[in-house]
Design a protein around this nucleic acid. Structure first.
Length: 281
DNA sequence: AGCGGAAAGG
DNA sequence: CCTTTCCGCT
């Protein structure tokens, strides 16, 4: 078993008192400013997950399937994105072009037939989020004969909460019970399949933390979303600190590393095996 | 609405 | 590398 970084806060979605935070928010490190050394600008998918995570609601929201989201107000979303990037002339046409570039990276996927509906490939995103993944070659692992199981691929599928084993202790069970209908990726830290036995160390580090906007009845009364304590918001409203060891840009690089492979298969892929994004892979 | 090439910029 | 801008095509 490979080691994970230690020394982090407790699981933000599974606090001792049983309170269930609803805010999501990436950890601060996701928002390193462009001018800070060794950092880059926020990327579109960061931004989308952020809006989705905090249940921004108006412009964009989660869809019916796992990882699926619907842009309810395309031009507004574009405006928000433009504001963030300092691009006053941003519009949905241009934003959607950027989204389409994600197809090749396999971060995103279009849900065909559903207007303004896309789907995240969380297997991709989350996997590369594991610090220390892939595990260093322990014993000589039997080299898989064909498929690319090398750098970003997981040896196991990420499962929805229903089929996953809570690794967070009691509170995780609460979550598990609370989020039946549509578990979203931010729940994964506490809902990973057993093989990976989510260590406490990781809980504070996961970017997709939080609970869905609407939870079970027993959770609704928990009031306004308590923000994670470690969150630092600066004057312009975004997080600047970067305490943790890994960051979304790192993830991006990992993702990008696979694009070349993907692009090579580009034409093959088109033939029609998009159906499994987010499930396996 | 949605796609993807081409070029350019940060 | 990650868009942003523009655009022809379906």
């Amino acid at each position: 078993m490979w080691e994970l970084p230690s020394g982090s806060a407790g699981c933000p979605v599974a606090q001792g008192d049983g309170a269930v935070p609803q805010a999501v928010l990436f950890p601060d490190w996701a928002y390193k400013p462009a001018w800070s050394p060794g950092s880059r600008q926020v990327q579109l998918w960061h931004f989308l997950l952020e809006l989705l995570g905090r249940g921004e609601g108006g412009a964009i929201g989660w869809g019916g399937e796992w990882g699926e989201f619907v842009i309810r107000d395309p031009e507004r979303l574009a405006r928000l994105w433009g504001e963030r990037k300092g691009k006053p002339h941003m519009n949905y046409d241009k934003l959607s072009r950027a989204l389409r570039y994600y197809y090749n990276k396999r971060i995103l996927h279009k849900t065909k037939g559903k207007r303004f509906t896309y789907k995240f490939n969380f297997s991709k995103l989350i996997l590369v989020n594991y610090p220390g993944y892939p595990p260093p070659p322990q014993p000589p692992p039997p080299p898989p004969s064909h498929q690319l199981l090398q750098s970003g691929a997981l040896p196991f599928p990420l499962l929805p909460a229903e089929s996953a084993l809570p690794a967070c202790g009691g509170a995780a069970s609460v979550m598990h019970a609370a989020v039946q209908p549509m578990p979203h990726p931010f729940l994964l830290p506490c809902c990973l399949p057993k093989p990976i036995a989510m260590p406490r160390a990781l809980h504070g580090h996961f970017p997709f933390i939080s609970a869905p906007a609407r939870l079970g009845a027993n959770l609704r009364e928990s009031g306004p979303p308590p923000l994670p304590s470690a969150l630092h918001v600066s004057a312009n409203g975004w997080h600047h600190k970067s305490p943790a060891g890994w960051d979304l840009n790192h993830i991006s690089r990992r993702l990008f590393g696979e694009v070349k492979q993907t692009e090579i298969q580009g034409e093959q892929r088109k033939v029609g095996n998009d159906a499994q994004m987010g499930e396996s892979e």
